[in-house]
Amino acid sequence: MDPALATTRTEVSASDRPRLARHVRLTFSRARQRHVLLHPETVVVLNGSGAAILELCDGRRTVAEIEAELGARYREVPGEEVRRFLTRLVARRWMELTDG
Rank of each mutant, 00 (worst) to 15 (best):
A68I: 03
R73H: 02
V43E: 14
L46E: 08
E96N: 10
T42C: 11
T8D: 14
E65D: 04
R61F: 01
H23T: 15
P3F: 02
V24M: 08
T10W: 09
N47D: 10
A72G: 07
T42V: 14
P78R: 06
W94G: 14
L56W: 02
S15D: 15
R9G: 11
G59S: 04
T7H: 06
L70F: 00
V12P: 10
T42E: 15
V44F: 08
T27H: 15
A4T: 11
R30K: 07
R25S: 15
A52H: 03
E81N: 13
V24T: 09
R32Q: 07
V45L: 11
E69S: 00
L86K: 11
D16G: 06
I66M: 00
I53W: 01
G79E: 03
S49K: 00
D2E: 12
F28D: 13
C57L: 01
H39V: 15
N47Q: 01
C57E: 04
A4W: 09
G48Y: 04
T87P: 08
L37T: 04
V12S: 09
Q33Y: 04
A31P: 03
L86G: 07
A51G: 06
L97M: 08
T27F: 11
V63T: 05
V12F: 05
D16F: 03
H23S: 15
A68K: 09
E80Q: 12
L86N: 08
T98R: 15
I53Q: 01
E11H: 15
A14I: 11
A14C: 09
S13N: 10
C57G: 01
I53M: 05
Q33S: 07
H23K: 15
L97Q: 08
L54Q: 07
G48D: 12
E55L: 13
F85G: 10
R9T: 11
L97I: 06
R83S: 09
A68L: 07
N47W: 01
T87G: 12
Y74A: 07
T98E: 13
G71T: 00
H35T: 06
C57V: 04
R60P: 02
T7A: 08
G100K: 13
T42A: 11
D2Q: 14
R92P: 07
M95S: 06
L20S: 10
R75E: 08
L86H: 10
R60E: 08
V90M: 12
E67Y: 00
R88S: 14
P3H: 03
R83V: 10
G71S: 01
I66K: 00
R92Y: 07
R19P: 04
L38F: 05
F85N: 12
A21K: 12
G48F: 06
A91L: 14
V82P: 06
E96L: 14
A51V: 04
W94R: 15
A72E: 10
N47Y: 00
L89Y: 10
R32C: 03
T42S: 12
L5G: 10
A52L: 04
L70W: 01
C57Q: 04
R34H: 10
P18L: 07
R22L: 13
A21P: 09
D58M: 06
D58W: 02
S49M: 04
L46Q: 08
Y74I: 03
L54M: 05
E65A: 02
A72R: 12
P3I: 06
R17A: 05
R32D: 04
R75V: 09
R17S: 03
S49G: 00
V63N: 02
R22I: 09
R60A: 08
G100Q: 14
R25L: 14
V45Y: 08
S13R: 13
P78H: 03
V63Q: 02
T7V: 10
L89S: 13
